[in-house]
């Protein structure tokens, strides 16, 4: 019973926290660029405004794909928040990304098409890494249920955590890897043909996706004391956001092939090294 209540509380609180996190992100970006930056609550204002705008869509399919995307991302996060299976959440979230790409394809605009293709390519680049990280997490933990994580895994899986950096960069749409939403190339890629409320829906879906990805990161750390545990988890998330902003502000955007290659090589490489190290350790080869 208490689990369900915690889950419900998380379901409401976490998206709010994500909004705040994005506010911090924008503020931090602005500070790094010698600017003042928007208020912390700016993402909420944006979302609020978008929901108040005129509802206008290119076609019906687009609306249904937007709805499907946000629902799937929400489900993925809900499965995660209520202590469900991580693998289920992972696949549902992947389906949400697919719906986003399909929505872009359905618009028939050239930029939408390009954005959709690039979105699929991004999925191809980061999902294997994310999957392997989830797999290694579950394997170490002995269970894939998100509420069964109570152990500190950070010292066992440090490399797998670092492998999450490109994944976070891609999902946060940050500079070297913001291929699908490249503002200066294809305007805003997958979002280009959406406006008003539907754009707001997609943004909300993106928040849930971020919540899921950041949720995975928080699983790395756990402590017996609930306060220390929460502090540690938020610290990891903040460090990741800071890193993402730092990398965003010190790199130019790479190209498609480069992104796939780098993310896969970096992410999979680190995770596999971690896996091998663990295996050696478990089999006692060192001792």
């Amino acid at each position: 019973m208490t689990d369900a209540i915690t889950g419900l509380a998380m379901l409401i609180a976490v998206p709010l926290l994500i909004g705040l996190l994005l506010g911090i992100d924008r503020r931090l970006t602005a500070r790094m660029q010698n600017r003042v930056g928007p208020p912390l609550l700016q993402p909420f204002y944006d979302l609020w405004k978008l929901f108040g705008k005129e509802r206008r869509a290119v076609n019906q399919a687009q609306v249904s794909f937007a709805a499907a995307s946000v629902l799937l991302q929400f489900t993925a996060f809900a499965v995660f928040a209520t202590g469900g299976d991580l693998l289920v959440a992972f696949f549902v979230s992947g389906a949400g990304n697919l719906a986003l790409a399909l929505g872009a394809f359905s618009s028939r605009s050239a930029y939408g098409q390009l954005g959709g293709q690039r979105e699929l390519l991004q999925v191809l680049a980061y999902e294997p890494v994310l999957f392997l990280v989830i797999f290694i997490l579950g394997w170490q933990n002995g269970s894939f249920l998100s509420d069964a994580f109570g152990e500190n895994l950070l010292y066992l899986l440090p490399l797998a955590l670092i492998a999450m950096v490109p994944v976070v960069l891609i999902t946060m749409q940050k500079s070297p890897f913001d291929i699908a939403t490249a503002h200066q190339e294809i305007v805003s890629g997958v979002y280009v043909e959406y406006s008003g409320t539907y754009l707001g829906l997609l943004k909300l879906g993106h928040w849930f996706e971020l919540a899921f990805v950041f949720g995975i990161i928080t699983l790395f750390f756990s402590a017996d004391d609930i306060v220390i545990s929460l502090l540690g988890k938020s610290l990891i998330v903040l460090v990741f956001v800071f890193l993402a902003v730092l990398i965003d502000n010190s790199t130019a955007r790479t190209t498609r092939g480069d992104m796939v290659f780098k993310t896969l090589a970096f992410g999979l490489g680190l995770t596999i090294i971690n896996l091998v190290l663990l295996w050696i350790d478990v089999s006692g080869a060192i001792w």
Binding site: T29, R35, A182, Q184, E185, D248, A252
Partner: peptide, 9 residues
Amino acid sequence: TVGYENMFM
């Protein structure tokens, strides 16, 4: 245009 926002600023 190459996505280097910071340098632009």
